[in-house]
Design a protein around this nucleic acid. Structure first.
Lengths: 285, 285
DNA sequence: CGTGGTTGTTGCGCTCGACGGAACGCAGTC
DNA sequence: GACTGCGTTCCGTCGAGCGCAACAACCACG
């Protein structure tokens, strides 16, 4: 198992890439996707955390096999992790699982869970890619509250919606936010469905169908529903639990967001929303 | 931009001003945390995580000083942590902070805790019904550890307590958890009763009376006891044996949780806690 | 534009700390 | 009671990780 050490060749450290297959490193017999270089024992210890995150529970022998190290080594590492409360054993002489220390650390990271802060660079990129206006909104008191907006490349600055409350049933963002609600709370936030244009969805059964479609396809459309000539597409942003916490949208004049262009925009906005979700801790399992 | 919503950003020293009760005369030789025995490098690496959790952000030199090791050592450890996404640097050649890997792990831990799993839908419903923030906490190391949080309908996430250790005597959750203890273990977990506001209960006899009241009425109140303007009400969650295993709370600004509204909130939170208890096997006697 | 102070980053040789082998105590199970 | 699995402990060895020092940027002086 001794790995070829002396000469360290590649300098680029980027190995893991979410979907990427691990690089073909020499003697890569480890089934776990742990990074090759770094402080060995720390690398292994963190590997243990990842194993436990994946399996939920594991014994020392199992862990040792997974990492490709001796039992005693795995035990020493696990004991060190336990001293820091990052793992805990179910009973004495039992298996191990992740401990409360993880939660304490996570609590410290929530300080930077500022949605706007994390989403901004991605919003900017999305605005640059599409050339249209990008918005991010959350649910607030029976309406959509726009938290941030990045203008597109086009000269004419659209209306600035930041801080505005927007009806839920007539916007793409609103539909996405509604799609994340359960049936019970859905009824609580839905008042009368006001009519804004002939295309506004005003009948509840139709809205439910639409929300079901949004859930299924992972994004929402709104064409001429709030305002004639205004088209928008939105995708959900999820937190670590998978809840829909916000919605990210691209909007612009309908004559520019033509049906054939929409497909590409849909792809971009869903990708961006997934990226933000990842930064919020979503994406395990 | 985005002036409208003051979602608290990166305030540095913002971490609970409460937990750090000045320890009387703790070991001066130990640089930071529990660094007893174990794998040295792993111990140090985890120490780095704790430093970052405490300070929010830190540079390599600062970390090295905190741990009492050489810069290069700290750098290598931090680089290893970074490879696993547990830390990340703000910009190139910049300071380090905790990364999203922590959130992934945290998500895995809460997913493993059946308590959170079972309680989550009920918490969500409770948050929707009351419009306020719902928390669920357990007893851990002489303090209340918050396991989960569901934000209320108001847009701005007040403060994310998940993973934080909160004093037991100054919170509604803490009182509920204490009320489930026996006399002997009660004395063990109670240290000095720190004062946070003029309303904090700091005298032991008064606290005992309060706990007796909590036991009798089946819920706990905390108005302006941890923080002026913060009101919370909590109810016990019991397992199949009837032991208090967790506490569920609704909290919000005192101006919104008025006395006349509290009655209704008390009813809702106790009902929700009973429902969770039932799911954990309580109630068949 | 230099100059002295920071930072984070990187080779390098020495040494001490982490590693693996083996043995131990303890549960179950043929 | 022998067997086989588990988690745990002890110990000698050797290579991995340590501290040193030099490096490359950056910032604040003057």
């Amino acid at each position: 198992m001794s790995k070829a050490v002396p000469v360290d060749g590649e300098v680029d450290g980027e190995v893991v890439s979410a979907t990427g297959v691990p690089t073909a490193s020499a003697a890569a017999e480890l089934p776990t996707a742990v990074t090759g270089q770094g402080v060995q024992s720390v690398d292994r210890a963190l590997g243990i955390l990842e194993v436990l995150a994946r399996t939920g529970e594991a014994g020392v022998t199992e862990i040792a096999a997974e990492l490709g190290v001796h039992k005693s080594t795995a035990f020493r590492l696990v004991a060190t992790l336990e001293a820091h409360r990052l793992v805990e054993q179910t009973v004495d002489r039992g298996r191990y699982r992740l401990g409360v220390g993880i939660l304490r650390l996570a609590g410290a990271t929530t300080a930077r869970l500022d949605l706007v802060q994390e989403a901004r660079p991605i919003c900017r990129q999305l605005a640059a890619d599409t050339g249209e206006t990008v918005n991010i909104a959350v649910l607030s008191e029976s309406s959509a509250l726009y938290l941030d907006q990045v203008a597109g490349s086009s000269a004419l600055q659209p209306h600035n919606w930041v801080g505005q409350h927007i009806p839920l049933h007539a916007t793409s963002n609103g539909k996405v936010l509604l799609s994340g609600l359960e049936e019970s709370s859905l009824e609580a936030v839905l008042g009368t469905l006001a009519t804004y244009t002939p295309h506004t969805i005003t009948r509840r059964p139709l809205l439910r169908e639409e929300l079901e479609r949004v859930r299924a396809q992972g994004y929402a459309l709104a064409v001429d529903e709030l305002e004639v000539g205004l088209t928008a597409v939105a995708a959900p942003v999820r937190n670590a639990h998978g809840d829909v916490v916000a919605s990210m949208s691209v909007s612009g004049p309908s004559f520019r967001l033509t049906p054939e262009r929409l497909a590409e925009v849909v792809r971009l906005v869903t990708e961006a929303a997934v990226e933000v979700s990842h930064r919020l801790g979503w994406g395990h399992r």
